[in-house]
Nucleic acid binder design. Sequence first.
DNA 1: CCTCTTTATGTAAACGTTTACATTTTTTAG
DNA 2: CTAAAAAATGTAAACGTTTACATAAAGAGG
Lengths: 355, 355
Amino acid sequence: MSTMRDVARLAQVSTATVSRVINSPDSVRGKTRKKVLRAMKMCNYKYNALARGFATKKSNTIGLIIPNINNPVFAESTLGVQEYADEKQIKVILGNTSYKVSQEESLIKALRESQVDGLIITTTNPKGEIIKTLITEKIPFVLLFSTVKGGPVSVVGVDNYRGGYIATEHLISLGHNRIGMIAGSFSVTDRSYHRWHGYRQCLKDHGIPYNKNLLVQTGYSLSGGRDSIKQLLNQELSPSAVFCSNDYIALGAIKGAREAGLSLPEDLSIVGFDDMPTASYMVPALTTIRQPAYDMGKRACELLLQKMENPGKPEQHMMETKLVVRESTAAPQEVKTDKSENYWTSSDPRTNYIL
Amino acid sequence: MSTMRDVARLAQVSTATVSRVINSPDSVRGKTRKKVLRAMKMCNYKYNALARGFATKKSNTIGLIIPNINNPVFAESTLGVQEYADEKQIKVILGNTSYKVSQEESLIKALRESQVDGLIITTTNPKGEIIKTLITEKIPFVLLFSTVKGGPVSVVGVDNYRGGYIATEHLISLGHNRIGMIAGSFSVTDRSYHRWHGYRQCLKDHGIPYNKNLLVQTGYSLSGGRDSIKQLLNQELSPSAVFCSNDYIALGAIKGAREAGLSLPEDLSIVGFDDMPTASYMVPALTTIRQPAYDMGKRACELLLQKMENPGKPEQHMMETKLVVRESTAAPQEVKTDKSENYWTSSDPRTNYIL
DNA sequence: CCTCTTTATGTAAACGTTTACATTTTTTAG
DNA sequence: CTAAAAAATGTAAACGTTTACATAAAGAGG
């Protein structure tokens, strides 16, 4: 491999000039520029960005940390940051934590050693030491899908509380009053915790008593949703509607419900959260709370790059969340408006399925 | 930020010794090692992997190029390479081509400039110049999901021809004889081209005449599948079964078919290709040709690292493909063969659902 | 206690750029 | 045509490691 020195020698100029034709071509006379360009061709010169990074202390690389690339919503946000980064000639190193804090930690360490210029983190550990360290050491970073609203960190997120609230409200407006929730484990991430808060508050605001048996926490996986719905359905008073704290879980839940013999949305309404790309392709098409994952990724990247140039104040970008009604929700079969009637004594033949 | 020199000064040793306690601790006496370690703590030393990469000409980074991270099968394979790389302390830079050759080209260029130690490419351009260049310039790389079977390149793939064949054979064995195919555009990738070949040969081997109107090529997207199925269904003699060249397209096709008023699998059988993680969660659960995407990613990474150490001969790893029968395929309603019996007169209670 | 071997440490160049500063060349204008 | 200003180019140090080689220290055997 030839270096700048080789090119310089061949073109009979200094390495500085070669560097200049690469980085600021206008600052060198047309004649010499051509000479250099020709020499570069001749010795098949390949630019070494790593050496540049070393010299300038900028790697033009950022790290992107997500819990699980298999969750379509993270794939979508990843695409957002990627495409923006690409536009700006920034490379992105991807890391998967599998929702493990230790993994998140070691990834951040490795990425910092690699001298990434910044970090975009969909964290599993929002209050953790890790983040604090990043702050005190002044590493540019932004938290994606973050729940933190104030504070000294840059963030792009969504109001999860509100999302949970409007999801629940939708269900209530349809006439449901036994509304369950399948949440990703609160100990793993606090996104679903906030969504649960919204859910709970909405119930309260509508005079529906909260029943803790109607909440189940599970892993952020397809099978998590599938197992959990069965657990919910096995209760004596099973829910007529369930809010799942993400679409991926909802997909599992729908599968589980069908396996239990229910047909949706007649026997059970499901609302998800995310609006992943396939949500409208599901059967039934999923009613969900949309968060603009692609744009969020893009925004996060934009914010980060800007922050890298010019640290400035931390910025919080809270994106709009909105209810997308599709086919997975409907009015419950028997609306129990007045308290006199007992839901479970209903003679609906479908109750057979609930076992 | 403190450097090795700072540490060395503080510990009153040479930088070489500091380097040694990091890279081969056993080669330095316990006493000095401790001294150095203490000094590292004291000045909060952070290792600079970029400088190391510069000095050693190894970045400990590989590039992973895929067409579209949103396709779950690529996400899954990405996870495979990631986790293996992680184990070996290798960072992976991810690039999306959106199935554009030009993008693939520029990504490869950028990654090479960044001095990645190797490349894993799910290419959109299998015979292209790009690959040839990589060979002549001796860049370690492996092609993932590649169709090339022989030749001078390392590869992990699957026999796409055979996959297409067994998918079609399944449909034929069910009694179908008007079998369509929705293929990803042949000009974009040749994976679906090979699958189509298998499909076509299978038809031929079973005495079913090939009808070119039953093939539609489309984009590798959900909407591609959805639009294409409608096109197929609008024909005078529409197919009773369709082979989709991947699950992502199949998901779109199922949606389209439902929108056209069909119920699956009674009115139309669909078989996909990939077995993406959500395939068994779809409704109907997708019958498909499984390729072990995670393992393929892992294998590709393993192969690459090994190749990086020791170039050696190119290796071809062809993984097993297998038919996974689920719910999206069934016998056609009226069997077109001359056999006297008509399927749809069967008293199978399931037909109740077909409305 | 001395020599020989082994083990631990130090020295200094190298990796391929960038860049502040110095120097040369070109341009401008009188 | 010349001096001053402006533009182009050159010089050389710096970035933070690694590593071949040289040197010094420690251990072994007599």
